[in-house]
Simulated assay, not measured.
Amino acid sequence: MKRNLVIATLTAAALTTGGTVAAFAAGDDEATAPQRQASTSARAAADRADADDQADSADDRDDDASDDRTAAPGGSVTAADAIAAALKHTPGTALSADLEDDGGDAWEVTVVKGDGSAYDVRIAPDSGKVLGAQRDTDDGHDADDRAELTAVKGARTDAREAALAAAAKGTVTEVGLDDDKGGVAWDVETVKDGRQGEWKVALDSGRVTQDRAED
């Protein structure tokens, strides 16, 4: 746009001066010094306009690239990934995984070690890095964890496998255990196209069914 403006201005100047600038550009040796100076200034202005256009184009490309980077999905850590990372750091049995603050903070994975002690392991949702592990000193919570641990011992489907099974229904945001009508199953929450879903995953077969209690 700037370059077109300069060219239009130069064209008008050339017409009012009887074409002397054009004559000099064509090699007219009779052009006067002021005419030569005017032509040189005109060329310099046109070069600057070209440079400005190129700079504007480069800025536009950078802005577009920045928008693409912002919109592009990052390498988000799945529930299954978070559970695997937590168990690698704190070996034991994973009883739950919860994406805190809808993904804005961290995954929190509850792991019960072989001695019965429970730990909350926090996993970064963007890198899978372990942010920390804290022992759960709540006696009541420990009793619940032990009861859940008893339920999942010997089960064919663990927390990670339950998360993988339910991932076909959407993005898994939470995995836990639920004692429904005397039967224990994995309870998995998902999000897909802005809609939340809740699913039951059988401990023995890994079969995924919709939690009808949420309908």
Score class of each variant (00 low, 15 high):
63 D>Q: 14
47 D>E: 15
119 Y>S: 03
206 G>I: 04
138 D>S: 06
48 R>P: 01
175 V>K: 04
104 G>F: 12
116 G>Q: 00
30 E>F: 14
37 Q>N: 05
5 L>T: 12
40 T>Q: 11
133 A>Y: 00
115 D>W: 04
102 D>A: 11
100 E>M: 08
134 Q>F: 10
128 G>I: 14
55 A>D: 07
146 R>A: 15
151 A>V: 03
114 G>S: 10
48 R>D: 11
116 G>H: 00
172 V>G: 11
193 D>N: 14
195 R>T: 07
71 A>P: 00
184 V>T: 12
11 T>C: 13
63 D>F: 13
76 S>H: 10
183 G>I: 12
18 G>V: 05
29 D>E: 12
139 D>V: 12
112 V>P: 01
124 A>M: 09
67 D>I: 14
108 E>C: 09
54 Q>D: 12
101 D>Q: 07
29 D>W: 07
140 G>Q: 07
82 A>G: 11
153 K>S: 14
27 G>E: 05
27 G>N: 06
9 T>A: 13
186 W>Y: 04
101 D>H: 07
96 S>D: 13
168 A>N: 05
201 V>Y: 01
200 K>L: 06
74 G>Q: 10
171 T>E: 11
59 D>G: 11
198 E>D: 11
23 A>Y: 07
87 L>H: 03
162 A>E: 01
35 Q>C: 10
33 A>K: 08
42 A>P: 00
81 D>K: 03
31 A>T: 05
24 F>T: 00
115 D>Y: 03
95 L>Q: 07
68 D>P: 02
65 A>V: 13
163 A>H: 06
113 K>P: 00
121 V>R: 06
5 L>N: 10
34 P>R: 09
68 D>V: 10
126 D>N: 13
147 A>I: 10
61 R>C: 10
69 R>V: 08
125 P>F: 09
124 A>H: 15
187 D>P: 03
104 G>I: 05
15 L>M: 10
166 A>D: 02
105 D>I: 12
96 S>G: 13
161 E>V: 02
50 D>Q: 08
30 E>R: 15
113 K>C: 03
4 N>R: 15
206 G>W: 02
188 V>Y: 01
170 G>C: 14
151 A>F: 02
111 V>A: 01
44 A>L: 15
198 E>M: 06
45 A>I: 13
82 A>S: 09
199 W>M: 09
133 A>C: 00
67 D>H: 13
37 Q>L: 13
194 G>P: 04
153 K>I: 07
141 H>P: 00
131 L>T: 04
185 A>P: 02
182 G>P: 09
66 S>A: 15
85 A>Y: 04
109 V>L: 04
